[in-house]
Write a protein that binds this DNA or RNA. Structure first.
Lengths: 210, 210
DNA sequence: AGATAGTGGATAGTGCTACTCACTACTATC
DNA sequence: GATAGTAGTGAGTAGCACTATCCACTATCT
C-alpha cells in the first residue's frame, strides 16, 4: 500500500478512506493484513483524484459513478445518460415570472437549434435557473448573447462525441470518458475561456481603436 | 429588513451574516435599531446569491470581489484583471514529466492561436494542471481535441467581450459583468454543453448510420 | 399608555464534507 | 525477536455556510 500511495501521490489514510467509501475496491488479500494492488488500482485512484480536483465532484457523486461503472446490469443506452445525469449538479430556479420567461427563452433557443431535450433534464433545469437569475439581476445582454454561448457549447459537445466515438463496447472506458469529459472538461473549457478573454481584452484595450 | 428579505427571498439571518462578512454594506441607520435599505441593497444581495448559487464562489472570494468594486483606488485597467483572477480558482499541477509535457502542449496551442498569456496567470496554471492530469489518466484523445475546446472557448470569450463593450466607465457595472459573466457563465456554458451532448448523442445512437 | 412585533448587533451552535488520526491485531523482514 | 509496515475501523478535525438565540431597544397598532 505504501507503493500505491507513492505512485499516486495520495496519502495512505486517504486511500483507506476512499476504500471505505467504496470508491476503490479493496485489493486481493494475500494474508490477514496484507493485500495486493495492481495497475487497476493506480488507474482508479488517479481517476478519483482527477474528478475530485478538477471535476469538482463530491465523494458521494463519485461513489455513485463508480458503482455505475462496476454494475454490469445497466444497459449501455442508459449507462451514459445516467453517468451524465450524475455529474450534473442541478440547481432549481424558484418559480416566478423570471423563471417562466427564462424557460420560454431557452425553449426558443432549443427549438431554433433543433436540440431535442426533456424538460426534466438536470442541465435543462440548471440552464433555466441561470437564465432566471440573470434576468433578475438585470443581465439581459447576456441572455441575448446566449446563441453565441450555445455555439460554443455545441463545438465543445461535438469534440466530446468525437472522443467517445461510435464504439461503446468497453463500458468502463465509455463511462469514464463521459464523466471525465464532462466534469474535467468543464474546468478545461473554463480555463481556456479565461485565457481567451485575457488575450482578446488585451488586444482591445491596450491598443485602443484609433 | 423584513422587506429586504421578502423581495430578495433571502432569510433575515442570512442577510445579517452577509453584512457581518462584509458582502453587503450595513444600510443607513435611522435610529439605534433601525436602518434604511435601498435598491442598491436589493441589487447587491441578488448579485451575491447569483454568485453563490450559480457561480459556485465562496463567501470569502465574494468578499474580495466586493471590496474591489468598492475600492475606488484601483485603476480601471487592473480592476478587471484582478476581478478575473479572483474568480478563477487555481489548481496547481505537481511537478513531473506529465506537467512539463502539458505545459509544452499548452504553450504550443497558445502560440498557434496568438493568445498572449502570462505563465503566472491562474487560468494558465489550471489548464496545465488539467492537461497533466488527463495525461496521467491516459486521456490523450482529449488533449488532442484541445483545439476544438479552444475554438469553443474563443467563441464564448468573444461574446463575453461584446457584453462588456468598450466603455468601462461604470466601474461597479464593469466588474459585475466580468464576475457574473465568467463565473455564472461557466455554469451556463456547462449546462448548454450537456444539452448539446444529449442532443447530438441521441441523433448518433438512436438512428445509427445505415 | 401599553402590548406586540420587529430591528441591529453579537455570540454560539448546526450540519455537512473531506479528510486525518489513532488504535488493534496482526505479519514480513532484518 | 525487534522493528517496521498493513488491513480494517472508530473517532476526531477543520472549514464552510449558514442558523438560532439572545439582548436592548423602538416603531406601530389599539
Amino acid at each position: 500500500m505504501a507503493e500505491l500511495s507513492e505512485t499516486t501521490g495520495i496519502p495512505v489514510p486517504t486511500i483507506k478512506y476512499y476504500m471505505r467509501e467504496g470508491l476503490v475496491s479493496p485489493g486481493r488479500p494475500t494474508g490477514r493484513n496484507q493485500a495486493d494492488y495492481g495497475e487497476q488500482h493506480v488507474r482508479r485512484l488517479r481517476l478519483v483524484r482527477a474528478l475530485v480536483e478538477y471535476g469538482g465532484l463530491s465523494i458521494a457523486v463519485i461513489r455513485d459513478l463508480m458503482a455505475q461503472i462496476d454494475n454490469p446490469d445497466l444497459e449501455d443506452f442508459n449507462l451514459l445518460g445516467a453517468a451524465q445525469k450524475t455529474v450534473t449538479q442541478q440547481r432549481e430556479a424558484r418559480p416566478g415570472p423570471s423563471r417562466d420567461e427564462a424557460e420560454r427563452r431557452l425553449r426558443d433557443l432549443l427549438d431554433r437549434r433543433g436540440w431535442r431535450t426533456r424538460t426534466g433534464d438536470p442541465a435543462y433545469r440548471t440552464a433555466v435557473g441561470v437564465l432566471a437569475t440573470l434576468d433578475e439581476v438585470g443581465y439581459h445582454d447576456m441572455i441575448d448573447e446566449m446563441d453565441a454561448y450555445a455555439d460554443a457549447a455545441e463545438k465543445a459537445a461535438e469534440a466530446d462525441l468525437r472522443l467517445l466515438g461510435p464504439d461503446v463496447s468497453d463500458r468502463e472506458r465509455a463511462v469514464e470518458i463521459v464523466v471525465v469529459g464532462t466534469s474535467v472538461g468543464d474546468t478545461l473549457i473554463a480555463a481556456l475561456r479565461r485565457l481567451a478573454q485575457a488575450s482578446i481584452s488585451e488586444r482591445m484595450y491596450t491598443r485602443p481603436p484609433a
